[in-house]
Design a protein around this nucleic acid. Structure first.
Length: 212
DNA sequence: CGTTTTTGACCCGCGC
DNA sequence: GCGCGGGTCAAAAACG
Protein backbone atom coordinates (compact mmCIF):
# COMPACT_ATOMS: atom_id res chain seq x y z
CA UNK A 1 0.00 0.00 0.00
CA UNK A 2 0.98 3.46 -0.31
CA UNK A 3 2.15 5.25 2.67
CA UNK A 4 -0.27 8.02 3.00
CA UNK A 5 -1.36 7.40 6.42
CA UNK A 6 -0.79 10.47 8.32
CA UNK A 7 -2.98 13.34 8.90
CA UNK A 8 -5.03 15.08 6.41
CA UNK A 9 -3.33 18.32 5.95
CA UNK A 10 0.04 16.76 5.76
CA UNK A 11 -0.74 14.26 3.12
CA UNK A 12 -0.16 15.31 -0.38
CA UNK A 13 -2.83 13.03 -1.65
CA UNK A 14 -5.51 14.78 0.19
CA UNK A 15 -6.81 17.38 -2.06
CA UNK A 16 -5.89 20.83 -0.95
CA UNK A 17 -8.78 21.91 1.08
CA UNK A 18 -7.95 25.46 0.45
CA UNK A 19 -9.46 25.49 -2.96
CA UNK A 20 -12.01 22.75 -2.71
CA UNK A 21 -13.95 22.47 0.46
CA UNK A 22 -14.66 18.89 1.14
CA UNK A 23 -18.27 18.11 1.02
CA UNK A 24 -19.77 15.73 3.46
CA UNK A 25 -23.12 14.17 3.52
CA UNK A 26 -24.03 12.87 6.85
CA UNK A 27 -26.70 10.45 7.77
CA UNK A 28 -27.45 7.97 10.41
CA UNK A 29 -29.36 4.82 10.64
CA UNK A 30 -31.01 3.22 13.52
CA UNK A 31 -29.46 0.35 15.22
CA UNK A 32 -30.93 -3.04 14.90
CA UNK A 33 -32.93 -3.13 17.99
CA UNK A 34 -33.97 -6.66 17.86
CA UNK A 35 -35.49 -6.75 21.24
CA UNK A 36 -37.67 -3.91 20.41
CA UNK A 37 -38.11 -1.26 22.94
CA UNK A 38 -35.05 -0.98 24.98
CA UNK A 39 -32.58 1.13 23.19
CA UNK A 40 -31.45 3.36 25.92
CA UNK A 41 -28.84 5.63 24.84
CA UNK A 42 -26.75 5.61 27.88
CA UNK A 43 -23.71 7.59 27.69
CA UNK A 44 -21.00 5.83 25.96
CA UNK A 45 -19.71 8.84 24.24
CA UNK A 46 -16.96 9.56 26.62
CA UNK A 47 -14.38 10.39 24.07
CA UNK A 48 -12.11 12.53 26.05
CA UNK A 49 -13.93 15.66 25.59
CA UNK A 50 -10.98 17.84 25.67
CA UNK A 51 -11.66 21.05 24.03
CA UNK A 52 -15.01 21.61 22.49
CA UNK A 53 -17.72 19.17 21.78
CA UNK A 54 -16.63 15.63 21.68
CA UNK A 55 -16.79 13.83 18.44
CA UNK A 56 -19.63 11.75 19.70
CA UNK A 57 -21.95 14.60 19.25
CA UNK A 58 -21.21 14.38 15.63
CA UNK A 59 -22.56 10.91 15.50
CA UNK A 60 -25.86 11.74 16.93
CA UNK A 61 -27.61 8.56 17.62
CA UNK A 62 -30.86 8.12 15.82
CA UNK A 63 -32.95 5.55 17.46
CA UNK A 64 -35.96 5.08 15.32
CA UNK A 65 -36.78 1.59 16.21
CA UNK A 66 -39.67 1.77 13.90
CA UNK A 67 -41.03 -1.44 12.81
CA UNK A 68 -40.63 -2.02 9.15
CA UNK A 69 -37.84 -4.31 8.49
CA UNK A 70 -34.59 -2.81 9.27
CA UNK A 71 -32.46 -1.64 6.50
CA UNK A 72 -30.83 -3.64 3.87
CA UNK A 73 -28.43 -5.31 6.16
CA UNK A 74 -29.56 -7.63 8.84
CA UNK A 75 -26.59 -7.14 10.97
CA UNK A 76 -27.39 -9.54 13.67
CA UNK A 77 -24.76 -10.34 16.16
CA UNK A 78 -21.92 -12.23 14.74
CA UNK A 79 -22.86 -15.73 15.24
CA UNK A 80 -23.08 -17.72 12.16
CA UNK A 81 -19.67 -18.46 10.95
CA UNK A 82 -19.88 -22.15 10.62
CA UNK A 83 -16.67 -22.25 8.88
CA UNK A 84 -14.66 -25.07 7.66
CA UNK A 85 -13.56 -26.42 10.94
CA UNK A 86 -15.52 -29.44 10.06
CA UNK A 87 -13.04 -32.18 10.55
CA UNK A 88 -11.26 -30.40 13.24
CA UNK A 89 -12.30 -30.91 16.75
CA UNK A 90 -15.36 -29.44 18.17
CA UNK A 91 -16.16 -25.93 17.64
CA UNK A 92 -19.47 -25.51 19.06
CA UNK A 93 -21.84 -24.66 16.41
CA UNK A 94 -23.30 -21.31 16.39
CA UNK A 95 -26.90 -21.29 17.20
CA UNK A 96 -27.94 -20.81 20.72
CA UNK A 97 -27.91 -17.13 20.69
CA UNK A 98 -31.29 -15.78 19.93
CA UNK A 99 -34.05 -14.78 22.12
CA UNK A 100 -34.00 -11.65 24.07
CA UNK A 101 -30.37 -11.08 24.41
CA UNK A 102 -29.81 -7.82 26.04
CA UNK A 103 -26.71 -6.80 24.22
CA UNK A 104 -27.95 -6.34 20.74
CA UNK A 105 -27.67 -2.66 20.30
CA UNK A 106 -25.50 -1.85 17.43
CA UNK A 107 -25.99 1.58 16.04
CA UNK A 108 -24.95 2.36 12.57
CA UNK A 109 -23.73 5.63 11.31
CA UNK A 110 -23.03 6.45 7.76
CA UNK A 111 -21.73 9.47 6.08
CA UNK A 112 -20.71 10.34 2.64
CA UNK A 113 -17.57 12.18 1.92
CA UNK A 114 -15.95 13.62 -1.06
CA UNK A 115 -12.36 12.66 -1.02
CA UNK A 116 -9.71 11.02 -3.04
CA UNK A 117 -8.75 8.55 -0.42
CA UNK A 118 -11.11 5.89 0.75
CA UNK A 119 -9.83 5.57 4.21
CA UNK A 120 -10.21 8.58 6.34
CA UNK A 121 -8.17 8.57 9.45
CA UNK A 122 -10.55 8.92 12.30
CA UNK A 123 -8.03 8.14 14.96
CA UNK A 124 -8.74 4.46 15.31
CA UNK A 125 -6.87 1.53 14.00
CA UNK A 126 -8.71 -0.62 11.51
CA UNK A 127 -7.93 -3.99 10.14
CA UNK A 128 -9.42 -4.89 6.83
CA UNK A 129 -11.14 -8.22 6.89
CA UNK A 130 -12.90 -8.37 3.64
CA UNK A 131 -13.70 -6.83 0.37
CA UNK A 132 -16.66 -7.58 -1.78
CA UNK A 133 -18.12 -6.18 -4.87
CA UNK A 134 -21.64 -5.01 -4.61
CA UNK A 135 -24.07 -5.22 -7.37
CA UNK A 136 -24.75 -1.76 -8.53
CA UNK A 137 -21.36 -0.42 -7.97
CA UNK A 138 -18.28 -0.70 -9.92
CA UNK A 139 -16.02 -0.34 -6.93
CA UNK A 140 -15.78 -2.98 -4.28
CA UNK A 141 -16.78 -2.41 -0.71
CA UNK A 142 -14.19 -2.82 1.96
CA UNK A 143 -14.86 -4.10 5.43
CA UNK A 144 -12.82 -3.00 8.38
CA UNK A 145 -12.86 -3.81 12.02
CA UNK A 146 -11.38 -2.03 14.96
CA UNK A 147 -8.28 -3.80 16.13
CA UNK A 148 -8.79 -3.05 19.75
CA UNK A 149 -9.63 -6.06 21.79
CA UNK A 150 -13.20 -6.18 22.81
CA UNK A 151 -14.10 -3.39 20.50
CA UNK A 152 -16.38 -4.80 17.92
CA UNK A 153 -16.79 -1.74 15.91
CA UNK A 154 -16.95 -2.34 12.23
CA UNK A 155 -16.72 -0.01 9.38
CA UNK A 156 -17.23 -0.35 5.69
CA UNK A 157 -16.06 1.90 2.99
CA UNK A 158 -17.45 2.10 -0.44
CA UNK A 159 -16.89 4.39 -3.30
CA UNK A 160 -19.64 5.27 -5.65
CA UNK A 161 -19.16 4.12 -9.15
CA UNK A 162 -20.86 7.16 -10.45
CA UNK A 163 -18.77 9.70 -8.70
CA UNK A 164 -15.37 8.48 -8.03
CA UNK A 165 -14.89 11.25 -5.59
CA UNK A 166 -17.68 10.22 -3.30
CA UNK A 167 -16.93 7.73 -0.61
CA UNK A 168 -19.51 6.27 1.69
CA UNK A 169 -18.21 5.25 5.05
CA UNK A 170 -20.43 3.33 7.38
CA UNK A 171 -19.60 2.84 11.00
CA UNK A 172 -21.27 0.15 13.01
CA UNK A 173 -21.12 -0.02 16.74
CA UNK A 174 -19.51 2.15 19.30
CA UNK A 175 -15.93 2.23 20.36
CA UNK A 176 -15.35 1.25 23.92
CA UNK A 177 -11.89 2.60 24.22
CA UNK A 178 -10.20 5.92 23.78
CA UNK A 179 -8.80 6.98 20.50
CA UNK A 180 -5.20 6.23 19.88
CA UNK A 181 -4.34 9.23 17.91
CA UNK A 182 -5.02 12.79 18.50
CA UNK A 183 -8.55 13.86 18.37
CA UNK A 184 -7.72 17.12 16.85
CA UNK A 185 -7.45 15.41 13.62
CA UNK A 186 -11.04 14.51 13.60
CA UNK A 187 -12.15 17.79 14.88
CA UNK A 188 -10.31 19.42 12.16
CA UNK A 189 -12.34 17.52 9.71
CA UNK A 190 -15.50 18.44 11.42
CA UNK A 191 -14.59 22.01 11.25
CA UNK A 192 -13.84 21.82 7.62
CA UNK A 193 -16.63 19.65 6.58
CA UNK A 194 -19.92 20.89 5.48
CA UNK A 195 -22.96 18.90 6.16
CA UNK A 196 -25.11 19.25 3.18
CA UNK A 197 -28.05 17.20 4.14
CA UNK A 198 -28.84 14.80 6.88
CA UNK A 199 -30.79 11.91 5.61
CA UNK A 200 -33.36 10.50 7.87
CA UNK A 201 -34.25 6.97 8.59
CA UNK A 202 -35.67 6.51 5.17
CA UNK A 203 -32.24 5.64 4.10
CA UNK A 204 -32.52 2.19 5.47
CA UNK A 205 -35.34 1.25 3.22
CA UNK A 206 -33.10 -0.44 0.81
CA UNK A 207 -29.49 -0.12 0.15
CA UNK A 208 -29.86 -0.53 -3.53
CA UNK A 209 -31.83 2.57 -4.06
CA UNK A 210 -29.42 4.54 -2.16
CA UNK A 211 -26.39 4.00 -4.23
CA UNK A 212 -28.20 4.07 -7.44
C1' DC B 1 9.16 -11.24 13.21
C1' DG B 2 4.54 -9.33 14.08
C1' DT B 3 0.84 -7.32 12.04
C1' DT B 4 -2.14 -6.15 8.30
C1' DT B 5 -3.80 -7.00 3.51
C1' DT B 6 -5.13 -9.98 0.10
C1' DT B 7 -8.21 -13.21 -1.68
C1' DG B 8 -11.22 -17.31 -2.35
C1' DA B 9 -14.37 -19.97 0.08
C1' DC B 10 -18.05 -20.29 3.02
C1' DC B 11 -22.33 -18.92 5.23
C1' DC B 12 -26.69 -16.84 5.81
C1' DG B 13 -31.09 -14.43 4.89
C1' DC B 14 -34.19 -13.52 1.52
C1' DG B 15 -36.66 -13.80 -2.92
C1' DC B 16 -38.20 -16.53 -6.43
C1' DG C 1 -35.37 -25.70 -2.40
C1' DC C 2 -32.23 -23.11 -4.97
C1' DG C 3 -29.85 -19.04 -6.34
C1' DC C 4 -28.47 -14.41 -5.54
C1' DG C 5 -26.43 -10.85 -2.88
C1' DG C 6 -23.92 -9.62 0.78
C1' DG C 7 -20.97 -10.31 4.94
C1' DT C 8 -17.20 -12.86 7.23
C1' DC C 9 -13.32 -16.06 7.92
C1' DA C 10 -8.91 -17.65 7.46
C1' DA C 11 -4.51 -18.96 5.07
C1' DA C 12 -0.96 -16.99 2.79
C1' DA C 13 1.30 -13.00 1.05
C1' DA C 14 2.91 -8.42 1.87
C1' DC C 15 4.63 -4.93 4.51
C1' DG C 16 7.17 -2.37 8.54
Amino acid sequence: MENYHMLFGATTHAQPSSATPNSYNFMATAGTGTSGGGLHDHDRGQHSGHGGRSSSSFFAELSNNNDSKDGGAPVAADSGRGESSAAAGEVDRPAARRKGDKKERRPRYAFQTRSQVDILDDGYRWRKYGQKAVKNNKFPRSYYRCTHQGCNVKKQVQRLSRDEGVVVTTYEGTHTHPIEKSNDNFEHILTNMQIYSAMGSTFSSSSHNMFH
